[in-house]
C-alpha cells in the first residue's frame, strides 16, 4: 500500500466514522438517557456515558411499574403508564405480522398471475398499485375508519391489520411485480411442458426464485406497519389495544414526562426493526434495486 493510499484510506475511515456518529447520535443519545438513573437524566452538563448504568427504566417497562408515590406517600394508582408496554409491544407484533402476511400472500399470487398469464385488465394493476403506493395515509385514514366502523371492527387489532394492508399492499404489489418480471420464465415453461401442474411449478420453481423479492417486500411492509402512528391513533380507543407508537404517547402524563422511561421505550421500539434490518440488509438493497426503484 502506498503512503498516499494509506492517507486516503485513513481519511475515508475517519470521515465515515464521523458521519456515522452524527447520523446515529440521536439513537446513541436515546440509549444513553435510557440507561441513566433518574437524577442524572436532567443533569447539566449532560453526559454521554452514564456515570452509573441502570436498567431501571427497562425493568419498569417490561415488568410494569405498579404505582409511583408522591412526596406525601399517598397511594397513587398509575393510570396509563408502563404496565401496558408489553401489551402494546405484542399488539405491534401482531398487527405488523398480520398485515404483512396478508399483503405478501395476496401480492405474491397477484404478481405471479399478472406476469405469467394474459387476461384483460392485468396491465392496469401495476399502474394502479403505483398510484396506491403514492397515496398518503392521511387521505385513507378517515374513510378507512368509516369502513371499519361499518364492519364493527374499530378498536380491534383487526382494524389496524386491515388498515395497514391498505398501505402495504400497493407497494408489495409494485415491488413483487417488478421482481417477478425479472425472473426468467424458461424454467417454468420447461417444467410445464414436462407436465408439472401450475401449482407445483408455482411452489417449487417460482417461489424459491422470488424469495429475495418476497423477503424485501415483507421487510418493508413490516417496517411501515410497525412504524405507523396515524392509523393507530384514529382506529384504536382502548389503551390495551394500542400498538407501541401510540401507546408510548401516554407517557406524556400531562404535567410530567419521564424522559428516561420515554427513551427506553424508544430504544425498545426500534430494536425489533433494527434486528430485522441487520439480518436482512442484503435483501433490502436488492429489493430497492429490483422493485422500489425502476432501473
Amino acid at each position: 500500500m502506498s503512503a498516499l493510499e494509506f492517507v486516503r484510506k485513513t481519511l475515508a475511515y475517519a470521515f465515515l466514522l464521523l458521519v456515522t456518529f452524527l447520523m446515529c447520535f440521536p439513537l446513541i443519545w436515546a440509549l444513553s438517557t435510557s440507561l441513566k438513573p433518574a437524577r442524572d437524566v436532567m443533569a447539566t452538563p449532560p453526559r454521554l456515558i452514564p456515570s452509573e448504568v441502570t436498567f431501571a427504566n427497562y425493568r419498569n417497562l417490561i415488568l410494569g411499574k405498579e404505582q409511583y408515590f408522591r412526596a406525601d406517600q399517598t397511594y397513587v394508582p398509575t393510570t396509563a403508564a408502563p404496565q401496558h408496554f408489553t401489551t402494546w409491544f405484542a399488539n405491534s407484533v401482531i398487527v405488523s405480522a398480520g398485515s404483512t402476511l396478508i399483503s405478501i400472500v395476496i401480492s405474491t399470487l397477484a404478481a405471479y398471475s399478472i406476469t405469467r398469464f394474459r387476461y384483460w385488465g392485468r396491465r392496469i394493476i401495476p399502474y394502479f398499485s403505483l398510484l396506491g403506493y403514492m397515496i398518503p395515509s392521511i387521505i385513507l385514514v378517515f374513510p378507512m375508519f368509516m369502513v371499519m366502523s361499518g364492519l364493527a371492527l374499530t378498536n380491534s387489532l383487526w382494524s389496524l391489520t386491515f388498515g395497514y394492508v391498505s398501505i402495504t399492499l400497493p407497494f408489495c404489489m409494485w415491488l413483487l411485480w417488478a421482481f417477478f418480471r425479472g425472473i426468467p420464465i424458461e424454467l417454468e415453461e420447461a417444467a410445464l411442458m414436462d407436465g408439472a401442474s401450475r401449482l407445483r411449478v408455482f411452489v417449487d420453481i417460482v417461489l424459491p426464485s422470488a424469495l429475495p423479492g418476497i423477503i424485501a417486500a415483507a421487510i418493508f411492509s413490516l417496517i411501515v406497519s410497525w412504524n405507523d402512528f396515524l392509523f393507530a391513533r384514529v382506529f384504536i380507543n382502548s389503551i390495551e389495544n394500542l400498538p407501541l407508537t401510540v401507546g408510548v404517547m401516554h407517557f406524556f402524563e400531562g404535567v410530567h414526562v419521564d424522559w428516561g422511561l420515554m427513551m427506553a421505550s424508544a430504544v425498545l421500539m426500534t430494536l425489533p426493526m433494527a434486528v430485522l434490518f441487520m439480518l436482512m440488509q442484503r435483501h433490502l438493497v436488492a429489493g430497492f434495486g429490483a422493485g422500489a426503484v425502476k432501473g
Partner: peptide
Amino acid sequence: KLETLAWDGVYIKLMTDLAAKN
C-alpha cells in the same frame, strides 16, 4: 376500567368513539 384521555386528545377520542358508536 379507566381510560385516560390526554387533554389534547379528548376530541379525537370523542370523535372516533362516538363515530364508532362505542
